[in-house]
Design a protein around this nucleic acid. Structure first.
Lengths: 250, 250
DNA sequence: CCTGTTTATCGTCAGGCAGACGACTATGAT
DNA sequence: ATCATAGTCGTCTGCCTGACGATAAACAGG
C-alpha cells in the first residue's frame, strides 16, 4: 500500500440527493434544472461538492437545507422527521465529462410539503413523479416536461426508489412520509404510492395496528379524508417491523 | 451549483475491502498488517487508492486480486464464485490523520481458501475471526494477537458483517461461502457461523430444499463430514429467497 | 329525513409456513 | 456388534396472511 501524499489521483467528491415524498397518491422526487453545461437545461438530482472539513452526511444535510429548507432530525424515525441515509456511491470514470467525480448519493424521505419548495424560482426546483422520471429512459425520444435526467442520475434515482420500496417492508420508515399525526388510511396510501399497488384496507389495518411499537394512538380523530372519522396516530419507537410487511407478489 | 474545476476541494478516494469467509465454524475477515505510519504494525482492512481511469468496483476487484489472488466472477451468485458488492462510503474529515480520504468500502464473500492467502509473507496477511476483531474495541486494553484495527476499520467491518448477516436471510448468497459442490449440512454450518446461532438441521433441510432454484442436486454424495452420506448440491439460479430464511429471535 | 357514497374498523375462515421434535437411515470408529 | 455421527423424512401446532363479509360513522344530494 504505497502512499505518496503529493501523488494521489485527483478526485472531486460530491453528494447527490434522492429526495422522495408522496404527493397526490404518487411517489415524487425532487429535481433541479441545471443552469450551466454540461446537460444545461436538463433536470438533475440536487447535490454539490463536499466541503474540506465536512462529513458526508453533513454535506448531504446542508445541500438538502439549501435546496429545500428541510432540516434533518438527528436519529429520526419520528413521523414528521425527515429521514436521511446514505444510499450508494457512483464513481464511473466518465460519469462526468468535466473531470473525475465520485458522488456519494443519499436518500431522503420527507412528508409532503404544502409550501412549494423554497429557494430559487419555481422554474429551477420541482417535484416530479418518479414514474415519469424513470420511464423517460425507456422511450428514447421523450421531451414532454423535460428530457431524461442528467449524468447517471436516472440510475441513482432508480436505486433510491428501490431502496425506499424495500425498506418500508421491514422498517417503520413509511411514517417519514407522513405528517406528525396521520391515520391508518393515510399510511396505507403511502405504501400504495411507493409500491404502486393496491392494498386491502382491512388486512393493512390489522397488520399495522397489531405490530407493537409501530403506531401510537394520539386520541384524536379526523375526517379530512372523508367518510367515517379515523383515529390519529403518531409513529411509535419501533424502527424494525417483525415480521415484515411484504409487498404483494408480482 | 457553482463549478470551478480548479477550485474543488482536494480529496483522495480509496477502496477498502471487507473480505469474509467461514473457517472452522467461525466467520473470519481478511486483515493486513500495516507496514508504515500511521497505525504502523496494526492490522487493517485491505485496500488502496482508486486509479484515475478505474471504476470503483474495478478498483475493489483489483485490490482483492492483488491481496489474495481471488478473482471476482462477473454476475456471480454461483457457488464457488466470489461475490463482491459495494458496502458503504466513509468520509469523516479526520478519519485519516494524513489527509482527507473518502473510502468506498466493498464487501466480498468467498469460500474457505485451502491455500494460505498468497502474496507477501504470512506475517502481513491473515484471516482473523470477526468476533475477536469486533470485540477488541470493547475491552480497551487489548493486545493479544494484535490490537484494534486501524482507522475506522472496526466500524466498516461491523457494517460489512451486519450486511452479510442480513443478506443471507433473503438472498441465496450464503452459497458464496461454499465450495462449488456442497451438502445441506455444510450450508447450514455457514448460516450458523455467520449468525452465531444453532439451527435445527431438519427444519433447515426442509427450508433450503423446498425453496425453488436455491439448490440443484448434482447427483453425487459425500461423507467428508462423517456420518451418513449426504447429497451434493450446486447453487441454483435463484438470487432471492421468498419467503426469506429468518434468523431466530434474540 | 332518507338514501347513496365514502372511509374506517371488526370478524371469520382457510392455507401456508415455521418451530419443536420423533423416527429412521447410512456411514465410520471401537 | 455396538456406538456415535450426520442426514433425511414426517407430524403436529400455532402464527400470520390473503380473501372477503359485515357494521359504523361521516357527508352529499334529493
Amino acid at each position: 500500500m504505497p502512499y505518496d501524499p503529493s501523488a494521489y489521483p485527483p478526485f472531486a467528491v460530491t453528494v447527490d440527493l434522492v429526495v422522495l415524498t408522496v404527493r397526490r397518491h404518487a411517489l415524487c422526487a425532487l429535481v433541479v434544472r441545471r443552469g450551466e453545461p454540461p446537460y444545461q437545461g436538463r433536470w438533475a438530482l440536487p447535490g454539490g461538492f463536499v466541503q474540506p472539513k465536512e462529513g458526508l452526511a453533513a454535506a448531504a444535510a446542508r445541500e438538502l437545507e439549501e435546496e429545500t429548507g428541510l432540516r434533518v432530525h438527528e436519529s429520526a424515525g419520528q413521523s414528521g422527521g425527515v429521514h436521511l441515509e446514505q444510499l450508494a456511491t457512483y464513481g464511473d470514470p466518465d460519469r462526468d465529462p468535466r473531470m473525475r467525480v465520485v458522488s456519494v448519493a443519499h436518500l431522503v424521505l420527507a412528508p409532503d410539503l404544502p409550501a412549494p419548495v423554497s429557494g430559487g424560482d419555481a422554474q429551477t426546483v420541482r417535484w416530479a413523479p418518479v414514474e415519469s422520471l424513470l420511464s423517460s429512459e425507456q422511450d428514447a425520444g421523450r421531451e414532454a416536461a423535460g428530457q431524461a435526467l442528467a449524468f447517471d442520475h436516472v440510475r441513482i434515482l432508480a436505486d433510491g426508489v428501490e431502496r425506499a420500496r424495500s425498506k418500508i417492508e421491514y422498517s417503520a420508515l413509511a411514517t417519514a412520509f407522513c405528517p406528525p399525526e396521520f391515520t391508518v388510511g393515510e399510511l396505507r396510501r403511502v405504501y400504495e404510492a411507493v409500491w404502486g399497488v393496491a392494498l386491502d384496507p382491512r388486512n393493512f389495518h390489522r397488520k399495522v395496528t397489531g405490530t407493537p411499537g409501530f403506531l401510537v394512538p394520539t386520541g384524536g380523530t379526523t375526517t379530512r379524508q372523508g367518510g367515517r372519522p379515523a383515529q390519529l396516530f403518531r409513529a411509535g419507537g419501533a424502527t424494525l417491523l417483525n415480521p415484515p410487511m411484504l409487498r404483494p407478489e408480482v
